[in-house]
Structure formats: C-alpha cells, structure tokens
C-alpha cells in the first residue's frame, strides 16, 4: 500500500460525530456544567414564580415561555462563548486542530452544538411554560408568535455570543463585550434622536422590544442588528482562525 493510500484509508470524521464531540465539550467541564445547571434552575424558578405571582395574560404559558427564553439568553451565550474560547484560553485547540485540521469544520460543529442547545432549551421551556401556566397560572394559552419570538430571541443571543467568542478568541473580552456593548450603545443612543436614528440599527438592548409578541417584528432592525453582532463577527472570526497559527 502506498503512503498516500495509507493516509486515505481512514475516512475523515463525519460532521455529526464532530457535533457530538463538541456537545460533550460544552457540558463536560465544571464551569459549563454549573452554568447550564444554574440556567436550568433559573428557568424553572422563574416559570414557577411568574405562574404563581403574575396576573392575567402574564400568568399564561405564552408569557411564561418568553420569560424563560429571556433568562436563558443571559446565561447560555456564556456557555457557548466558553465552548469556543476554551480552545485558546485552555489551549485545547492544539489538540483539537491537530485532530481535525479543517478548522472551519470544527467551528461548524461547535455552532451546530450551540444551536442544538438552543433547540433543547426551547422545547424544555415550552413544556415547562405549559405545565406551569396550566397548573399554577392562568392557562396554557401560547400562540405561535409567542413560541417563535422567544426562540428567535434566544437564538440570536446565543449566536452573538458564539461569534464574539470566535472573533476575540478570549473569554473575558467576548463576555464583557456581549453584556457591556448594548449598555454603551443604548446610553449613546439616548443622547439625541438623530444619534438614536443610527444606533437603533445595531442596538442589542432593543431586541426584546423588537421581537415582542405584542407587535409585528421589525425585521429590518432585527436583521441589521443580527448581521452586525452575529454574522459579521462570525465571518471575521472564521477568517482570523484560518489565517492564525495555533499555539
């Protein structure tokens, strides 16, 4: 057998296998396990609290679900940031990218694992909201818009975290930017109406209002904000990763 034949004999790791590996990485460290556990506790706690104490439609499943997604979208982006940045902060990338030299495949697998985390969170939150709304609150009323908006908001936040983690390859930078940037932008945007005309296009802190179930979604502003905070850093981060040396 020739050398070239020998190196081709073992097929490259299939993407589903890489996703399974990244999924494990997301949950098998102490830090991320605690974050996920705290998120789960927070989601359960808030669902029960809202069902028990809110009144009217706020105690219905649709509203409870949106609150669950709101809580999850604070903590899950950190889980996802750590999934990405640990390749550098823990220098685990030296093994990861030696095992899988196609770096974009690793990133694709991580992103799919992150989206899977969002999907599972959404399903669990839906069930939880229906149970709490029906058993403790004011009923199981939950519209398609409720479900879609909550899920979309969570997804955008998680992908923003993912992309910032990839772009900066540093946990503190990505986490600080994830939470501090919207505050800074909304402060700047509050200076005057003309400044706000600009900042409203990429102000993350307005996402909850933009994706509210009470009005139709302003797709233009949501789209541009997601583009600026999720898509752009993701593309720049991929370019940076391809060009960089791992060490």
């Amino acid at each position: 057998m020739s050398a070239a034949g020998a190196t081709a004999s073992s097929p490259r790791p299939a993407l589903p296998r890489l996703v399974a590996v990244e999924w494990r990485k997301m949950l098998d460290t102490r830090a991320s396990l605690w974050l996920v556990a705290i998120t789960a506790l927070g989601v359960v706690g808030i669902a029960i609290a809202q069902a028990a104490t809110a009144t009217g439609s706020d105690a219905e499943a649709g509203s409870i679900f949106q609150t669950c997604c709101g809580i999850a979208s604070i903590l899950l982006p950190i889980v996802v940031i750590l999934l990405v940045t640990s390749e550098w902060s823990q220098r685990a990338g030296l093994i990861t990218f030696a095992l899988v030299p196609a770096r974009s495949r690793v990133i694709a697998a991580k992103l799919m694992a992150a989206v899977l985390l969002v999907a599972i969170t959404v399903v669990v939150s839906l069930i939880l909201a229906l149970i709490c709304g029906g058993a403790i609150g004011e009923g199981t009323a939950l519209s398609g818009a409720d479900a879609a908006n909550g899920a979309l908001y969570l997804l955008i936040n998680v992908v923003i975290g993912f992309s910032l983690g990839l772009l900066f390859m540093s946990s503190p930078l990505a986490i600080v930017l994830m939470f501090a940037a919207p505050i800074v932008i909304s402060v700047v945007g509050a200076i005057s109406a003309s400044i706000n005309d600009v900042t409203q296009w990429f102000d993350q802190s307005e996402l909850p209002d933009l994706i509210s179930a009470n009005a139709s979604i302003d797709w233009g502003r949501v789209g541009v904000t997601a583009l600026v905070w999720a898509a752009l850093p993701l593309v720049l981060g991929l370019v940076r990763l391809q060009r960089s040396d791992i060490d």
Partner: peptide
Amino acid sequence: VLGGPYRRIANPARHVGVMLDASAQHSGR
C-alpha cells in the same frame, strides 16, 4: 507527512500522533 501535507490527511490522528504541548489540555476535564 506520509507523503502529503498533514492537513490533507483525512483523519490525521489515525496515522500521525501529535503531542505538541502536554500542558495544553483543558484543566476542567
């Protein structure tokens, strides 16, 4: 490595064992 660039090997770890820094492993696992 084995006749071609390392990055072209479909599943490199089955052909080439690479350990570049033993301390570069996730401390939380």
